[in-house]
Write a protein that binds this DNA or RNA. Structure first.
Lengths: 340, 340
DNA sequence: CCCAGGGTTGGGAGCGCTCCCGACTTGGTG
DNA sequence: CACCAAGTCGGGAGCGCTCCCAACCCTGGG
């Protein structure tokens, strides 16, 4: 296992070259106050001349921190990763971390072995905190991290998750507003295409749909609900199924823009006009929503804010050492375009 | 910056509890030989009772290795990440690393600042090697890593890349075989939809297309070439454009399955039957290729082997300290389905 | 000219582990 | 029963950094 790399200059060597003490060099590289400007410059020159780079293992060991956080994807079906939601979130997290000096590391956890390995990595101190996305109902990872007292923030809660911090969008409210909008537009036979129902977010959106119908005095029929897995393909299938069961459908609330895009195709194939015959609403407001034909009315999730909030909560937990749990629910917003 | 976590037991404490020396405990946790079975069990019990987890920073510092490698995505347009190619590769790399005890970390490099930060991370010794995917022509990262003597393996070479290790598929050969196949099927007006041409892989596929046409004595017309960015949407657009320019097209070689899927839609929209009027060939052989209508004939890239080869090369470089460059070109394979 | 007090600086004491050498146990041999 | 090699073990010497306290340097007021 000879994995060592060629000798890099050490802090001590920089100190010798600049004719100062170790402490001074340390202060300079950490931008700490209390160093005379002239000294700082001397040290900086020595650093450049030697091409010095701090050894992060030593820094971690002495400083008891890693300056890195992990974003874990536990998606058992890792292909979901290809959905735009992931890349949008990852991007926003990256942005939110930009000037904290913290490195964002993505890791896959696709099996028990990988979960175990990651846990050792985290407990071993290679990261200071963990962001978890797309956590399914039975996943033990959050509890394991909690037990290890590792600061953790979930994206999207699971039902009953109180003893862990999370950031989530107001899925129920979003779905309600989608249905209300359709009702206002005079639609009366409204169906929904849900996401995978082992995801709490998908359950919430379904609940919002049902509640809105109920409070409008309309019967929420079970048969007007079809499940998808958030992909366009499954959206198409679900829509086809719904039309067949209920030819009189005049409105659909989809669980994501991707799903809605699939639904649009199915409607076109069935000869239904959108929005004239059937109005369609998506969820997420991804760039995709503006490129469909017609452009999609959709419930906007504030992805940018979600990322920022996750990072903020995580930093807070890291600061205080996970003594409290924080929950943030972000408001959604209906974006009306041409499909309703 | 109080980022420290609560006190974890140390190796020394385990040793004390098991009434052995530090060295013995170290041997046990590293599964080294030369420990009596009974001693090993005693130590193991102590480890469990204390819930001991090795401090990886200390291990790195003393052992001069990180037991981690990074997979860097330098895609300036990070949304490409959502393409299936990425998740397939990531999956195969994960598999290839499973029993090496090495943690795979994905990192995004979307800007100069992020590139700099990653470089410090890598040079600081947090990873033992770097895998680079989707490297565009002008990207300075490979050279920077080489200068730091960091073991590095590229996925897909860039033109003229000799002084860096890489793994690539035989893109030229793959494209040639696609064209040959169409010629055999009696097609004579063959177009191509390329990938983004600043990617060497896309250039190679284009070259293969041109060479195959030339050696069949057919004129390779420039106007039968349309560029895409590997997305379905751009494939659709490119195809529409091609049909307009050349209504007599009877064969198309697309630069990826996703692009081909887009092309299929455009053909359908234009009332062309596949394969009767126009034969279509994809590239990659993703699961998608079997779900299109009709199922796609495609040039298979051996993703699994690519991942394994990348890991193998990287491990070799890590072992010897980047003293040589290795190049592996993997054969592609034509998979004939219903679209030709 | 002396001294207080703030601004700088040096370097000891770890952080928790691996490496490795020397020492101690065995059990078999002569 | 002495002796030796192989099998086990203990613990010193770092790895390169941060933290922190003591020591030093000035400056200005008394």
């Amino acid at each position: 296992m000879g994995r060592r790399r060629p000798g890099t200059p050490t802090l001590e060597e920089v100190a010798a070259r600049a004719r100062v003490g170790r402490g001074t060099v340390s202060r300079v590289i950490n931008n700490a106050a209390g160093v005379k400007e002239s000294t700082r410059r001397t040290v900086q020159r020595a650093i450049e001349e030697l091409g010095y780079v701090p050894n992060l293992a030593a820094r971690s060991l002495a400083g008891r921190r890693a300056d890195a956080v992990a974003l874990v994807m536990t998606e058992p079906d890792w292909r979901q990763f290809a959905e735009p939601f992931f890349s949008e979130i990852v991007s926003s997290l990256g942005d939110a971390l930009t000037d904290t000096g913290i490195q964002l590391l993505l890791t896959l956890v696709r099996s028990d072995a990988e979960r175990q390995r990651f846990l050792e990595y985290a407990r071993g101190g290679r990261v200071d905190g963990v962001l978890l996305m797309s956590v399914h109902a039975g996943d033990p990872l959050p509890d394991m991290l909690a037990e290890a007292r590792m600061p953790t923030v979930l994206l999207g809660r699971r039902s009953g998750d109180e003893y862990v911090s999370y950031v989530d969008a107001d899925n129920i409210g979003g779905a309600r507003s989608a249905v209300s909008h359709l009702l206002q537009r005079g639609r009366r036979v409204i169906a929904t295409i849900t996401g995978p129902l082992d995801l709490y977010a998908a359950q919430c959106r379904l609940r919002g749909y049902q509640e809105a119908l109920a409070s409008a005095g309309l019967e929420g029929e079970r048969t007007r609900v079809a499940e998808s897995d958030f992909t366009a393909e499954s959206g198409r299938r679900a829509m086809a199924e719904l039309i067949e069961r209920h030819p009189d459908i005049d409105g659909v609330v989809a669980a994501s823009d991707t799903t809605a895009a699939g639904a649009l195709e199915a409607l076109r194939a069935a000869g239904r006009r959108v929005p004239e015959d059937v109005a369609v609403i998506g969820f997420d407001d991804f760039p995709l929503a503006q490129r469909t034909e017609p452009r999609l009315t959709t419930v906007r999730q504030p992805i940018e804010e979600i990322g920022r909030a996750m990072v903020r909560l995580l930093l807070e937990e890291m600061e205080e050492g996970a003594v409290a749990w924080r929950h943030v629910i972000l408001r959604t917003e209906l974006v009306v375009r041409d499909s309703t």
